[in-house]
Write a protein that binds this DNA or RNA. Structure first.
Lengths: 236, 236
DNA sequence: TAGTGGTCTAGACCACTAA
DNA sequence: TAGTGGTCTAGACCACTAA
C-alpha cells in the first residue's frame, strides 16, 4: 500500500506499532509524545488519530487521554456486491454488459467523483440477473485515470472483485441514497416489467480504504423483487 | 443555538450566508476568501468545510474549487419522528387525521405486533404535510390494551411525543423495510400526485426501551419528495 | 502562470480532569 | 498544578487544474 501523506503513514504506524501491542481501554501515548516519536507536528498526529477516532478504533477524553476502543460490532447494513448478495441467498447471479465506454464526465458526475469537470470517466452499464431473471439495472462511473484497461476486463461478474484483483482497490464504505421512481419504456423492457412500474433507485458514492472516492453508482431495482431492510435506533 | 467554537460558527454562517444563496454545482468562494471574510484562519475554515463535506453538503476538487452538492432531503438511519425530521429541516409539519379507530386485528398485523390474533388494536391513519404539501400517508397499528384513551388525544402532532408524555413509552429502535410501489387512485389524490406514481413504502416495527413491540407502522412517501440516505461499510 | 484545495509546521491558548 | 485533548493562528509548501 503506497502512502502519499504523512498522516496516512502515521495512522499505519500507530496501528502497527502502538495499538497492535495494546488491549482495549489501554491509554495511548499522548499526542505530543506521538508527535515527537514520529517526527511530525502535533496537527499531523491529530489528523491521523481523528481518522482512527472516526473509525471507532480509538476514543479520546479531553483532559485525560486517548484510549484503545472496544472492538466495534459491525452496525448497520453492509457494503456487499450484487454478486455476493445473490450467491449468499442461493441464487445464480449473471450479468449482461450493456455498455462500457470512456467518456467525458458531466459536471455533476465529476463533482460527485471529486474529479475535475471535463475529466475522463469510465461508464459501465450492466443488467444484473438472478437465476436468469432481471433484478436491477446498474450504471457506474469511475475516474478513467485510475483504472486503465478496466473496460477490457471481464465485467460479467463482480466488478468489485476486478477492482481488488487488478488495481488493489478495495471499497470500504459507501454513502447510499434510496428513492422511488417510475421506469421508462426502455428500462421496463430491460427489467421485464410494465412501463411505469415503480422501482427503487439506489445511488451510491463508494470510497476505498484511504477514503478516496472510487465510483459513483446507480442501481435501478425492480420494485416487486427488491427491498431494503435495516434497523434504526433512537439517538440518545 | 449556542456555539462554542469558531468553526461551528463558521459552518453555520457558510450555510446561512453562502450556501443558502447558491444552487447545486455552484462554486463557493475560495477557502482563503472565506477565511478573510469570517476573520478566522484558513485551518478553521477548513474544519468547518470538512464537516460540510462529510455531511454531503459540499464537495471539493483539488485545484478547482468547492461546490454545492446536490441537495438531499433525506432521512438518515436514526429513528426520528416525522415531526422532528421536518422541523430540523426548517419545514412546518402538519398532520391531517383521516381515521382513528379500535378494531380487531387482522392475523398478520397481530403477529407482527406480537399479540394474539383477534386482539383489539388501534388503527390510526394520517396524512403528513410539510408547509401544507402532502409528504406521506401513514397507517399505524398499536395494541389497544396498552394505550387506553390514545384515540381521544390530539394526534395532529407527533404521536411519538404523546406516547412518551401520556404512557411513558419511548421508542428505542425499529426494524424498517423499504420497498417501491405504485400508488392507487385514492392515495394519489391524498398525496396530490398522479395515479400510478412511484412511492416509497416504508414499513416498520418499533420497540421500546424494554424491547417490547409498540407499533407496526407503514408510511407511503411521495417518491418525488422523499429519500433515504445511509452509509454502508464493508465488513472486515 | 495564477489559482485552487490538501498538507504540514511550530507554536499558542482553552476546556477539562485527576485514567 | 500538571497534564490531557480541543481549538486556533499565520504562515509555508505541495499537487493539481485551467470552473
Amino acid at each position: 500500500m503506497a502512502h502519499t501523506t504523512k498522516h496516512q503513514e502515521v495512522r499505519e504506524r500507530v496501528l502497527a506499532e502502538v495499538v497492535a501491542t495494546m488491549a482495549p481501554d489501554d491509554m495511548l501515548p499522548t499526542e505530543r509524545q506521538l508527535s515527537e516519536r514520529f517526527g511530525v507536528s502535533r496537527m499531523t498526529v491529530r489528523q491521523a488519530l481523528n481518522g482512527l477516532r472516526a473509525d471507532g478504533v480509538l476514543r479520546s477524553v479531553r483532559g485525560v487521554g486517548t484510549f484503545v476502543a472496544q472492538p466495534r460490532l459491525s452496525k448497520g447494513p453492509a457494503l456487499t456486491s450484487f454478486s455476493e448478495d445473490l450467491k449468499s441467498r442461493g441464487y445464480q447471479p449473471t450479468t449482461r454488459v450493456i455498455a462500457g465506454e470512456e467518456i467525458t464526465a458531466e459536471t455533476h458526475v465529476a463533482i460527485e467523483l471529486g474529479i475535475p469537470p471535463g475529466a475522463r470517466v469510465l461508464r459501465i452499464e450492466r443488467l444484473r440477473l438472478a437465476d436468469g431473471s432481471p433484478m436491477c439495472h446498474e450504471e457506474v462511473f469511475l475516474p478513467a485515470s485510475r483504472f486503465p484497461g478496466l473496460l477490457t476486463e471481464d465485467l460479467t461478474h463482480s466488478m468489485y472483485a476486478v477492482l481488488d484483483a487488478k488495481y488493489g482497490v478495495r471499497l470500504r464504505r459507501a454513502q447510499q441514497r434510496i428513492r422511488a421512481m417510475n421506469v421508462d419504456a426502455r428500462l421496463a423492457e430491460l427489467l421485464g416489467v410494465e412501463s411505469n412500474s415503480a422501482a427503487l433507485l439506489v445511488t451510491r458514492i463508494s470510497t476505498d480504504e484511504a477514503g478516496r472516492i472510487v465510483e459513483r453508482g446507480q442501481s435501478i431495482c425492480r420494485g416487486d423483487l427488491y427491498d431494503f431492510s435495516f434497523v434504526v435506533t433512537r439517538p440518545d
